[in-house]
Simulated scan of single mutants.
Amino acid sequence: MKVKLAVSIILLTICFAAFGQEKQAVTNVEKGLTKVSVMYPYAEGKTFDLEYYETKHMPMVAGFLGSNLVKYTIEKGVSSGIPNQPLPFMAIGTFYVKSLSDYQAAIGPNRDAIRADFPKYTNITPIILVSEVVR
Results as ranks from 00 to 15, higher is better:
1 M>F: 08
3 V>N: 11
5 L>H: 04
5 L>G: 02
10 I>C: 14
11 L>K: 06
11 L>G: 04
12 L>W: 07
15 C>Q: 09
16 F>Q: 12
17 A>Y: 07
18 A>Y: 11
18 A>G: 07
24 Q>C: 01
24 Q>R: 12
26 V>H: 10
31 K>Y: 00
34 T>L: 02
34 T>R: 05
37 S>L: 09
37 S>R: 08
39 M>P: 00
40 Y>R: 04
43 A>E: 15
44 E>D: 11
47 T>F: 04
52 Y>E: 08
54 E>S: 15
54 E>G: 12
56 K>H: 13
57 H>D: 06
60 M>T: 14
60 M>K: 11
61 V>P: 08
62 A>S: 15
65 L>T: 09
68 N>K: 08
72 Y>G: 04
75 E>D: 09
84 N>H: 12
85 Q>A: 13
89 F>N: 13
92 I>G: 01
93 G>A: 13
99 S>N: 14
101 S>R: 10
102 D>P: 03
102 D>T: 11
103 Y>N: 08
104 Q>R: 13
106 A>N: 05
110 N>L: 02
110 N>D: 02
112 D>G: 02
115 R>I: 13
115 R>C: 02
117 D>A: 10
118 F>C: 01
119 P>C: 05
123 N>C: 07
123 N>T: 10
125 T>P: 02
128 I>T: 15
132 E>R: 12
133 V>D: 02
134 V>I: 14
